[in-house]
Design a binder for these strands. Structure first.
Length: 252
DNA sequence: ATGGTGGAAGCTCCA
């Protein structure tokens, strides 16, 4: 079972890239973020023609998440329980016995801002929820907007204390994994300088100025079934790409 | 030079 996650930064613009990626990478389940699409406009039929069922939760202009699957999707739910939030950042559902949680974490703007406080509150609620979960086979995928360690940042000295790499955010990430979730990417030896997001500005992608902020977290049982986790750079190399590129984990 | 680019909406906000 192959699980993928990708912040597409507008599903309308990126639909051709998404269809090509589904054909080439062949994920069984794909979690999407920043669809920026109201539910009435979600491209259900195009994705069905490509072999995928969709569940989604979107809004105009901002945010929006979706789960695509080649096999039936059951027990769809929306949002973090007991965390009131109008923003569409969380959808969860069961596929082949695996509970899939698709997340678009708040960006946080900058430490000290109201959006940063909201990001930390959102993470507290997420950790509380996942910590109470009794689901054995749990996979949390998405744009978590945190680079957990210095090796996940192209220039950790420059980024220290900045948004995505401040210590409170790194602590929030550790709190999530401490409920019993493994960072799938770090289950394996990886090359250095592996990132999932590069700013559109200053030619950051070609310069390698990236961060690893998109993640796949697996419960203990699923981590034992995981045989690989890779970052797929092909979509980021295309014309008019998303600023993020997909991450894929393979489960046996 | 505290810069720059992109998406969506619509003459600005968000990332």
């Amino acid at each position: 079972m192959r699980l993928g996650t990708w912040n597409v930064n507008s599903l309308r613009v990126r639909l051709p890239h998404l269809l090509d990626w589904l054909r080439d990478a062949k994920p069984d389940v794909a979690c999407l973020q920043e669809t920026k699409t109201e539910d009435a406009n979600f491209p259900v039929s195009e994705l069905r023609a490509a072999g995928y069922e969709s569940v989604f939760c979107g809004q105009k202009s901002y945010n929006g998440v979706a789960i695509l699957s080649r096999t039936p999707i059951a027990d769809v739910a929306y949002g973090i329980p007991d965390f009131a939030d109008d923003l569409k950042r969380c959808i969860h559902a069961t596929v082949n016995g695996v509970r899939i949680v698709c997340l678009y974490a708040p960006n946080g703007e900058a430490p000290g801002t109201e959006k940063y406080a909201y990001k930390l509150r959102w993470y507290e609620a997420l950790t509380r929820w996942l910590g109470q979960s009794k689901v054995a086979d749990l996979a949390v995928l998405g744009d978590l907007n945190i680079a957990p360690e210095p090796r996940d940042v192209h220039n950790p000295k420059r980024w220290e204390g900045k948004i995505h790499f401040s210590e409170p955010e790194r602590a929030a990430f550790r709190a999530v994994t401490n409920v019993g979730l493994k960072d799938a990417f770090r289950l394996f030896d990886q090359p250095e300088k592996q990132f999932t997001w590069w700013d559109y500005r200053l030619n950051a992608f070609d310069r390698g100025w990236g961060l690893r902020i998109d993640h796949i977290l697996l419960s203990t049982g699923l981590a034992k079934r995981c045989t690989g986790c890779t970052i797929d750079l092909a979509p980021r190399r295309r014309e008019r790409p998303s600023d993020h590129t997909p991450v894929i984990a393979e489960l046996n």
